[in-house]
Nucleic acid binder design. Sequence first.
RNA 1: GGCGCUUUAGCUCAGUCGGUAGAGCAGUAGAUUGAAAAUCUACGUGUCCCCAGUUCGAUUCUGGGAGGCGCCA
Length: 339
Amino acid sequence: MHEFEKAVFVVGATATGKTALAHLIADRLKQHGQTCELVNIDAFQFYRGVTAGTAKPEAQERLHYSYHGIDVLEPLESMDAARYAEFVWSVCRDVAGRGHLPVCVGGSGLYLRSVLHGLDPLPPRHDELRNMFRASAAAWGWPELHRWLALLDPERAAQLHPNDKTRIERALEIYFQLPEGVTSQSLLTKSKKLSEQEQLGQTFIIRVDCADTVLKNRINTRIDEMFAHGWLDEVIALRAQLGPILLESQAFKAIGYREIWAWLDAFEASPESAQGSLSQIRQACAGALRERIATLTWQYVRRQRTWNAKERCDWAVDSTHWAPDQFSWDNAFVDFLSK
RNA sequence: GGCGCUUUAGCUCAGUCGGUAGAGCAGUAGAUUGAAAAUCUACGUGUCCCCAGUUCGAUUCUGGGAGGCGCCA
């Protein structure tokens, strides 16, 4: 099974330098006559208007490296992992058709997984069903829906904790879309460890990581840069344009957006807002809010590392002392490129 | 200087009508099959500010001291 021919993946936790490494690879290969095109595998960079907080590459970089998969959705639209994999595969085929090399960059574990290995043929996302389940859960609580699931799909229910609302909801959504007599478990074939699962093409996986203290500093610096790039104004504008419905959107699940929103609410409700100026808001952003966002980002790093540890790694790059001019190719990577 | 409040986990604070204590957040580990930067799970010994007194027993009561906050001077 080949969903795409040949692709390089640059993966790793946030702020470890995936993008810089991908650009370096593209530049070096260009010198040897090989053109790369970059493909975003980040679950938030595809939303238009949600920019400052998602560390998207600069506009010139997007052109220069022929980026795909950035700003392809409106802020209130949503994506799912299976659709996303289809998109990446088709982009990679196009890129290969031009004789270029696709380099996929990103840190979203489930999305990487679905691109690298594919997902089993379960029924798709179904928002009407989800809304029904959510209404029931609001009345009865998720443990009650878990008990219900235990009657309908006992095998799946046994795997899920009664509080795991995301997965209970998904399991019910699957159950109600399957023909009678077909169980979700009977459709599952991908139960092997990720590192042992079949690959859907010829892939080379580069994993970037960085020492904790350095990474924490980079995260802080990056958050400062995000605010300097107008993160706050971006949230203010989106809020005025689209309103509270944004809080329900997938795009706004990106770290920091809901936190900034809540801070704006609190600020407007406070007495200081009467004579409050934007500079006061910016000051506050440099304080407690910034801390909170750094904490959330670090927690995310930990989750990414837990996930990444289970995926194959062909070349581990340590970006702690990042020096592009001293960077040398890994032999396995050279072999992969020449194949 | 006087009066009041306060001192308990890395932080914010509960609580023990006297039997050595627990939430949230943080932290650590793990999970993850179409929301994934999401979501979920597990993990809690800390001179209960210090000294003395009462008591079988004090983090808890009493007295003194020290730090913090507030009000009055």
